[in-house]
Design a protein around this nucleic acid. Structure first.
Length: 176
DNA sequence: TGTTGGATCAACT
DNA sequence: GTTGATCCAACAC
């Protein structure tokens, strides 16, 4: 079943963990994309230097300050989009980055957006309780591991926080 | 108005 | 292990 708003309004680390084993679904005009979520990362609040919201509210990260249960899509390195799902209550900036899906060529945040045709223009700010982009619970309860986040070495001590979650039985979600 | 660097990936050596 | 592709938001003038 489709996850309700209340799922996203809980603490971000719980949401990041619980999203593993769920299915991301993207309905387009001519096709439905769906894949199991196998890797996520949590980005929580102004004290997390790796979080875009650590530098205050801006045009780019505005979605993270809103209510949980919306898509936050941003463009990076001139070529790639990254898909995040916002969490927690309005006014508290937090989101979960979807890093990898169990879907062909979708292991990696940039690649999954390319495969799923997710763009900032079309999907940033989308309501995840709507009927374009959402997450489904199909009753799977995978073994979960956690580790350090990827590509955030600039964030100082925050880079060591074990806020990356992945499904144990996937040998290599997106990185060794 | 100009500069800079990033939550990446793939193709190299 | 390193590098090029390629662009927008943030910040410094």
């Amino acid at each position: 079943m489709k996850l309700k708003r209340s799922f996203y309004l809980r603490p971000t680390l719980e949401v990041a963990r619980d999203l593993l084993g769920k299915y991301l679904v993207h309905q387009t005009a001519d096709k439905i994309y769906e894949g199991k979520i196998i890797e996520t990362e949590a980005y929580v609040g102004p004290e997390d230097l790796a979080c875009h919201a650590a530098r205050g509210r801006t045009k780019r990260n505005e979605m993270m300050f809103g209510k949980g249960g919306f898509a936050y899509v941003y463009f990076i390195y001139g070529m790639y989009y990254c898909l995040n799902l916002t969490t927690e209550k309005e006014g508290f900036p937090a989101a979960v980055l979807i890093r990898a899906l169990d879907y062909p060529k979708a292991h990696g945040p940039g690649r999954l957006c390319r495969e799923f045709k997710i763009t900032r223009e079309a999907h940033n700010g989308l309501d995840l309780t709507g009927n374009v982009l959402w997450v489904e619970d199909r009753g799977e309860k995978p073994e979960i591991q956690s580790g350090k986040r990827i590509g955030v070495a600039y964030a100082g001590h925050c880079a060591d926080w074990p806020w990356r979650f992945f499904v144990s039985d996937v040998a290599r979600p997106s990185r060794p």
